[in-house]
Amino acid sequence: MTTTDPHTAPPVPTPPLPAEPGPASAAPSPPGADPAPAPAVPAPSAEPGSDAAGPGRASAELGPASVVPGSSAGPAVSGPGAEPSSGAAVLGPAPAVSGLSAEPGSGAAGLGPASPVRGPSAEPGSGAAGLGRAPAVPGPSVEAGLAPAVAGPVAGADGRRNLVAAVLCGVLGLVLVCGAGVAAWQDHRDAARPPSAEEQYRRAGTLWHETPVDVLFPPRLDTDGAGPGGADRAWTRIAVAPDADCPAALPADWQQALAGSGCTRVLRATYTDVTRSTLVTVGLVFTPAEAGAEAVSGLRDRLPMPSGLGFDAEQRAAWTVSVRSDAPVVVYAVSAFTDGRAVKRPLTAEEAMNPETEGAVARAGLGHAVRAVAGAVEKSLGARVAPPSPEPKR
C-alpha cells in the first residue's frame, strides 16, 4: 500500500529515460512518488589469503535504501561508504564488509582496524564509492628500513651454537699455548741439565765431523811453563792432514792394537816452535763409542810409537800416547828435529823428561814438547766433550 504525502504535489508523468551503463546509475523518480528500491550491490568478495572474513563469516547483504524526505531523489548506491559529493543519501550505516575499514566521512561502519597493507581508495569528489583499504597481501609485514623479524627459537639456537663454538675455540687455543709452553720448558730444562757421562761419551765420538779444525787444532798453542826448567813455549800450526781412514793414517802395529776396539777416523796436525828447530805431530784417533770405555782403556801401555806428519819414521825422536776415559779418543804426539836428522833410539816423553837421561833428544826438550802439545790439544778436545755448565743467575 502506497501512502501519499498531503503536502506533496500530484505526480507528473515523466517519460522513461534510457538506462545508463554501470551498476550505480538509476532513473530518477517523479516528485512525490515512492522511491523505488535500489538494486543491491554485492560487497566485494574477500581475496584468498586477505584479511577478509574467513570461513564461517558471511558478508552482509545490502537492503533497499530509503529516501530522506526533502532530499533529492536518486538511486541509492550501495557499497562500503558513498562519498557525500556523490549525490546519494544513505540511511543508516552502510553494510559492513569483512576486512575493509571505513574511510572518514563515508558513513560506513568498519569492522576493526585497517589492514596493515595500504591499498588504493576512492578520492573524494570522484563520484564513485571508494572501497577503503585494499585487502592484506599474504606474507610478513615489513616496514621501511626494518629487517624481517626472526623467530625467537631459531635465533636462540643460533646464539647457543655460536657460544659453544667460541668456547671450544678458546679451550683449543689455551691447550695449544699450554702445550707449546710445556715443550719449550722441557727443551730449556734438557738444555740446562748437564748430560750424563754416557751421553758425553757418545757425543764425543762424533766430534771429528762436527767440530771445526781450528777448535780441535788451534792455529797457535801457548804452553806456559811446559818447557825444560818451566820455560814458556809457544807452538804454531804448520800443517793439517785431511781426516783419513785408519789403515791410511796408522802404521800396521797400531791397526793391530786397535782391532779389538775398532777405529773410526784419524785427524792429524803438525806444529813447530818459535825457533823452528822442533816438529811435533799430534793426532786424534776416534774409536766407536759402542765399544765402551773399557775397550779403549785397555790400549794403555800397549800402543807403539806413532807415525809423524811431515817426517819419516827414522826421524822420530820422542812420543806419547793418552787414552781418554770421557771420550772414545786416543791422543798421541811424536816429535822430530827440523833438520831431518835420524834418531837411533826414540824415547818416550817420560824418559826424555827424566833429568838423568842423556842425549840430544833429552837436552833439546823434545819430551817436554810432545807432552805440552798433546796436553794443549786434549784441553781443546775436553772443552768440546764436556762444555762448562752455565753459572746460575743471581
Score class of each variant (00 low, 15 high):
Gly79His: 03
Ala27Asp: 06
Pro30Asn: 05
Pro11Met: 07
Ser98Ala: 15
Val97Arg: 05
Pro64His: 07
Gly32Phe: 08
Pro11Thr: 07
Pro84Val: 11
Val67Ser: 15
Ala38Tyr: 02
Pro37Gln: 12
Gly74Met: 05
Val77Asn: 05
Val97Pro: 02
Ala9Cys: 03
Pro48Gln: 00
Ser66Thr: 12
Val41Leu: 13
Ala43His: 04
Ser59Val: 12
Pro93Ser: 15
Arg57Glu: 14
Ser45Ala: 15
Ser72His: 12
Pro69Ala: 11
Ala52Trp: 02
Ser25Val: 01
Pro11Leu: 09
Ala94Pro: 03
Ala53Trp: 11
Pro15Met: 12
Pro95Val: 08
Pro75His: 09
Pro39Leu: 07
Pro31Asp: 14
Gly81Ser: 10
Ala60Tyr: 08
Val12Ala: 13
Ala60Arg: 11
Ala82Pro: 15
Pro10Gly: 10
Thr8Pro: 04
Ser50Tyr: 00
Thr14Leu: 14
Ala26Trp: 02
Pro48Ala: 03
Pro16Met: 02
Gly63Glu: 10
Ala94Ile: 04
Pro95Asn: 10
Pro93Gly: 15
Ala43Met: 12
Ser78Glu: 06
Gly32Glu: 03
Pro28Asp: 12
Pro64Arg: 06
Pro37Ser: 11
Pro35Asp: 15
Ala89Lys: 05
Gly32Met: 04
Gly81Arg: 05
Ala94Arg: 09
Ser71Asn: 09
Ser98Glu: 02
Val68His: 05
Pro93Val: 13
Pro28Ala: 08
Leu91Asp: 10
Gly49Ile: 00
Pro16Ala: 13
Gly49Met: 04
Ala94Val: 07
Pro75Asn: 07
Ala82Val: 14
Pro13Leu: 13
Pro37Cys: 10
Pro93Met: 15
